[in-house]
Each structure stands twice: as structure tokens, then as C-alpha cells.
């Protein structure tokens, strides 16, 4: 069977603006991954096509792209997950500067991630053995710790589109990961960072992030926990 990819292309050395290019190729069945098809385009038709990828099974977060208008991982999306009877539209993640083809500039995303001080800060010197933590308390962190920093959520958020300074769901999720860790003593610092006009209050519970997350993390729930925590702190 034949499928067509309609890929957004942009080479800063040649093009003044992005354009679309179509590639049609034979595939075995509808269980092929979009990443494998992109690789075949690159390896057999056009070596100039540029995209990031590494682990190819959804744990490294390199290949977040936009497929038929939805932010997804190329490696975790099969043909049968999309409408392949029409050309499949492949674009870079929205609202980020494009470096080349499907590769976007992630530096702003990482800067926001770093802004929430994403590391455990403990005032007490560590005990000889491990710090004790109940399994319930540990499991409260697991969903947020699943995040692979692929940026699918942040770039799907309308608040991010309108306000580039908005810290975004991924960084807020990271703030949750540490602010709700019973071993952490720096929750206030993190809450100060997100309690700003471009911080958590720009989240209007639109749920696009939840829909986009390839790891099925309920970001909005985690953000709501932070909002409640802030409200408790202030009132």
C-alpha cells in the first residue's frame, strides 16, 4: 500500500520560509511507525531531511513532532494511529523557532525547565542510610517523574502560543515533581518562581497538554495541585 507524507521543509541556508514537500512510498502495512517512514525518506530519497531521534521507543523524548496537527512522538505513532488515506502532514512542533526541517530550537524550553530549580534541595545533612519515604508519598511523584521533556505539551498549549514567556506545562510538572517530594526543602523557592504573571496563572485548564502527552501524564491535574498549594500558602 502507498502512503504520502507531506513534510514541512525549511533549510535556513536556502529557503526564506518553510514549504511543504510530498513523498510517496510503499509500506508493508498500517503498523509501520512514522519514524521508520521518515528514516526511509531520509535514507532512500532525500538525505537532507533533518529530524532528531534517538531511542526510537518513546523513552528519550527526541522526536516530538506534529503529525496531522497533533503533537506526538514519531517513534510511538503508527500509521494506523493517523488517517493515512490522505497525505500525512508532518510538521515541527509549533510555537518554537525552526532550525531546520523538523528540528526546533529547544533552548527556551530548557531555560523554563531550569527556572523551577529541578533538583532536590535538602537542608538537613543526609542520614547514613536512605531517607525514609512512604511508598504512597513516592508514588505521588511517579507520574510526574515519567516526563521525558519532549515538549509536546508545552508547545500544544494555547497560553504558550499567545505568551512566549509563559513557563508552560512541562516546567510546572517538574515544579510539582520536587515541590511535592517529602524529602525536599525548597518548595517555597519553586513556588515563588511559578507564582508570577507568566507563571502558573496563565494555565486556563485547556487540557491540550494532557491530550498531547505521549506518556499519558495528566498535567492539568498536577498543575491544579500546585495552584491549590499556592492558594493555601497565600491565604
Amino acid at each position: 500500500m502507498k502512503v504520502t507524507l507531506r513534510i514541512q521543509r525549511y533549510n535556513p541556508e536556502k529557503d526564506s520560509e518553510p514549504y511543504y514537500q510530498e513523498f510517496s512510498l510503499e509500506v508493508d502495512d498500517d503498523k509501520e511507525r512514522i519514524l521508520d517512514i521518515l528514516h526511509r525518506v531520509k535514507w532512500q530519497y532525500d538525505g537532507t531531511l533533518a529530524f532528531r531521534r534517538s531511542c526510537a521507543h518513546g523513552v528519550c523524548g527526541s522526536d516530538g513532532i506534529r503529525i496531522n496537527g497533533r503533537n506526538r512522538l514519531a517513534c510511538s505513532t503508527l500509521l494506523r494511529d493517523v488517517n493515512y488515506r490522505k497525505p500525512i502532514v508532518i510538521e515541527p512542533l509549533p510555537s518554537m523557532a525552526i532550525i531546520k526541517d523538523l528540528i526546533v530550537d529547544m533552548s527556551d524550553f530548557y531555560k523554563k525547565y531550569e527556572a523551577v530549580k529541578p533538583y532536590l534541595t535538602s537542608n538537613a545533612p543526609p542520614p547514613e542510610n536512605e531517607r525514609l519515604q512512604s511508598n504512597e508519598d513516592a508514588e505521588k511523584l511517579f507520574e510526574s517523574a515519567k516526563c521525558i521533556l519532549c515538549a509536546c505539551c508545552t508547545t500544544s498549549c494555547p497560553s504558550t502560543w499567545s505568551d512566549g514567556n509563559y513557563i508552560g506545562p512541562a516546567a510546572l510538572l517538574k515544579a510539582y515533581r520536587f515541590a511535592f517530594d517529602t524529602r525536599d526543602d525548597a518548595a517555597d523557592d519553586r513556588l515563588d518562581v511559578i507564582d508570577t504573571p507568566d507563571g502558573i496563572w496563565r494555565c486556563h485548564t485547556i487540557f491540550n497538554c494532557v491530550e498531547a502527552c505521549p506518556k499519558e501524564i495528566n498535567l492539568t491535574w498536577h498543575i491544579s495541585q500546585l495552584k491549590k498549594r499556592l492558594a493555601e500558602r497565600e491565604m
Partner: peptide, 20 residues
């Protein structure tokens, strides 16, 4: 491994709260 816990690695825990 205990050092990783001190660095903040989230581990699954035993009923006593130790690393599972």
C-alpha cells in the same frame, strides 16, 4: 545506591519506607 537516593532519585519503597 543510597547516594542516588540522597541526590533525590525517586525509588519505589518498602512498607518501612526503605528503597524497594
Amino acid at each position: 545506591v543510597i547516594e542516588l537516593e540522597h541526590m533525590g532519585m525517586p525509588f519505589s519503597r518498602t512498607p518501612e519506607g526503605k528503597i524497594a
